[in-house]
Amino acid sequence: MKRIWDISPPVSAQSPIFPGDEPFSLKWTARLSADCPVNLSAITMSPHVGAHADAPLHYADGAASSAEVDLDAYLGRCRVIHAIDCGPLIQVEHLRHAASQMPARVLVRCCQKAAMHWDPDFSAFAPETVEWLAGLGAKLIGLDTPSVDPASSKTLSSHQQLLRLDLRVLENLVLDEVAEGDYELIALPLKLTGACASPVRAILREL
């Protein structure tokens, strides 16, 4: 069987979130007993907790929600590129060494180890890097930090590049154990009507 890498972090009440976002919470609405044949749980959370796919609606009113995005970008050949400790912004120079015959999906590993707590000083994409990747044929980009834009950004310039270039995005991945190279990506968003994002169970599979 082909090897699989699970690149999704566990989701729990301890999952790091943007300040002000809705944390993960679980409660039991029914428990196994003499009168009940099942356990039933209910959850509340922002769709941006854990590994997730932003929908265009997240950064543009009237744009597609998670239920409306085309799934093709989230499934297929993918390249993992290392830009570990690249600083606040992923620049073209950090990725150029892996640019030959770039597939349509690109994931960038920035972290030595994925963060287990909120830290605003994470690496994000420079807007010109997003444009460069689109020019190489990218349909989807992703990374192992909370956002393609810095935590302090008010313009969300890289998100706006995604909108302009019609790219999809994955955030909050875990790429700690993934070597540079090409894989098959499977990271389908849920069909959440009207939602600005969706959790994904993202995996890589050897080709």
Rank of each mutant, 00 (worst) to 15 (best):
P37N: 02
N39L: 10
L40M: 12
S41Q: 13
S41T: 15
I43F: 11
I43M: 14
S46Y: 02
V49T: 01
V49S: 00
V49F: 04
A51P: 06
H52R: 01
D54S: 14
P56V: 11
P56H: 13
H58V: 01
H58G: 02
H58W: 03
Y59P: 06
A60K: 03
G62P: 07
A67C: 08
A67R: 12
E68W: 08
D72Q: 12
A73I: 00
L75R: 13
L75T: 11
L75H: 03
G76M: 06
G76D: 01
R77Y: 06
C78K: 08
R79Q: 05
V80D: 10
I81D: 02
I81Q: 09
D85E: 13
P88C: 05
L89H: 08
L89S: 01
V92Y: 11
V92I: 15
E93V: 09
E93K: 12
L95H: 01
R96N: 06
R96G: 04
H97D: 07
H97L: 05
A98H: 07
A98W: 09
S100K: 15
V106N: 11
V108P: 05
V108H: 00
V108C: 03
R109D: 14
C110F: 03
Q112C: 10
Q112H: 12
K113L: 14
K113S: 09
A114G: 10
H117E: 14
H117I: 03
H117K: 08
D119A: 02
P120K: 00
D121G: 10
F122A: 09
F125Y: 15
A126P: 09
A126M: 04
P127V: 12
E128R: 12
E128W: 13
T129W: 12
V130I: 13
V130D: 01
L133H: 03
L133M: 02
G135C: 01
G135A: 04
G135P: 04
L136S: 03
L136C: 08
A138F: 11
A138M: 00
K139T: 05
K139Y: 03
G142N: 04
G142T: 12
L143E: 11
T145H: 09
T145D: 04
P146L: 00
P146K: 00
V148Y: 09
V148W: 07
P150L: 12
P150G: 04
A151G: 02
A151P: 04
A151N: 00
S153E: 03
S153A: 08
K154C: 15
S157M: 05
S157I: 04
S158C: 02
H159C: 15
H159Y: 15
Q160L: 14
Q160V: 13
L163W: 14
D166Y: 02
D166S: 14
L170D: 13
L170I: 10
E171P: 13
N172Q: 12
L173P: 02
V174A: 08
E177S: 11
V178T: 08
V178L: 10
V178C: 15
A179M: 01
